[in-house]
Design a protein around this nucleic acid. Structure first.
Lengths: 219, 219
DNA sequence: AAAATTCCGTGGCATATGCTACAAAAATCA
DNA sequence: TGATTTTTGTAGCATATGCCACGGAATTTT
């Protein structure tokens, strides 16, 4: 297990846990590491999620399939990130999503029940784990909420402006965004060319100025 | 405090807490009840949220104001529901939302820090509280996630079908929804008449049948 | 039963938007 | 440097969609 310590250190769930305690903790949580080939199913939709997965290396996709069998990727997890935690915490019986490796990967699984319930050794880190978990999920919550703010807008213009303003709120009138055009369009769930067109209009109207991923809100 | 017990019983956060423990617990959590007139600000955007509010009676709105000062209602809480929990758990420093009474109301406030950290009396219910909190937030998470699924669709048709399928997945091909047309349109963030039009098309094409809020998916 | 209100569908209309195709610019690579 | 790929903007087009107005049906109130 020790060889994974360097990556485990970066896992948010373990924030504040002493490196020295890591070994005992993993033991207590019944940590198991599996080596998975590409396209291996780690969690099957419909089954009950009772483990939290941590990506040690490689990459996994969280996918959802609708009734017609169309596969939709709703998220990915890279090394240091994890999956299944919200499902476990919510206590769902049938997972609405599947989790699949999209590269050869190493995955660590923790028994969720062991995170919540202190073991007989009364390990001191359980409280920290739970607090971290609470914080992680709550933050995810806020991100989703925030994202809904502009997804709920009807027009392209509103979506873009709402997004840009929400970014600007945290910084200056001049700022850069972590997306190129296509990614931004995907993020806002709109067509790329419609986005470009609307940005051009906004610039022409003097509402904002931009160059590549650098934006300035005017007025 | 005792007069509030009947409503507190229904608060999810207290699931599994014995009625007999309620008094001591409220004391431990530094519960305070305030009586607020309509339009009283309970949490001001920009301030640090460190209390969880429980609506005992009346009603509150969770509102967000954009840079232009447009007020947008993003949620309400009725008796038995609470607010501020996700913000506290996430540890945000500046609340992105305000909370305002929209009727004369009675509100109970709990110190969030007291929920997380056991007090010196080592009250037995803390663990239960935290588990409840975790579950509540995680479930909210899944609801948001689910809602994003159809909000992210581009066309009215896709949004409606995705929504109806997600409802049908939990029941039969024949089912009813908890919305009338206008509410459904609001929920899906589309125009009501566009919704009616698209439903008419889908019926004509034999994709589904409906009467009021009763739907049947065909094919 | 009459009146008022809510709910729902339809038609007309302007236009915003998705889509395709293409080209210029920028970035990356050889 | 030259070639290739990626990124971005623009134009044309068909149509889906928001919006307004209206009317009928259903429901509630008086």
């Amino acid at each position: 297990m020790e060889k994974y310590f360097s990556i485990l250190e970066k896992v948010k769930l373990f924030d504040g846990i002493e490196q020295a305690d890591l070994g005992q903790m993993l033991n207590c949580l019944e940590a198991k590491v599996i080596i998975a080939k590409k396209n291996k199913i780690l969690l099957r939709a419909g089954s009950k999620p009772d483990q939290v997965g941590i990506v040690l290396n490689g990459m996994v996709q969280i996918v959802k399939e609708d009734a017609d069998g169309n596969r939709m990727v709703i998220g990915v997890a890279s090394p240091g990130e994890f999956f299944g935690e919200a499902l476990c915490c919510a206590g769902v019986e049938e997972s609405p999503v599947s989790v699949i490796t999209c590269e050869d990967s190493e995955i660590m699984f923790l028994e969720f029940g062991r995170i919540l319930r202190s073991c007989s050794h009364s390990c001191t880190f359980h409280r920290g784990l739970i607090e971290n978990m609470l914080q992680i999920i709550a933050q995810k919550n806020l991100i989703l909420q925030n994202r809904m703010d502009f997804l709920s807008k009807k027009t392209v213009r509103e979506k873009v402006l709402t997004y840009l303003k929400s970014v600007a709120a945290n910084s200056e009138r001049h700022f850069s965004i972590p997306f190129n055009r296509e990614e931004l369009a995907d993020f806002l769930c709109i067509d790329r060319t419609s986005l470009s067109r609307e940005l051009a209009r906004l610039k022409e109207e003097g509402v904002l100025d931009y160059w590549k991923n650098q934006f300035t809100l005017l007025k």
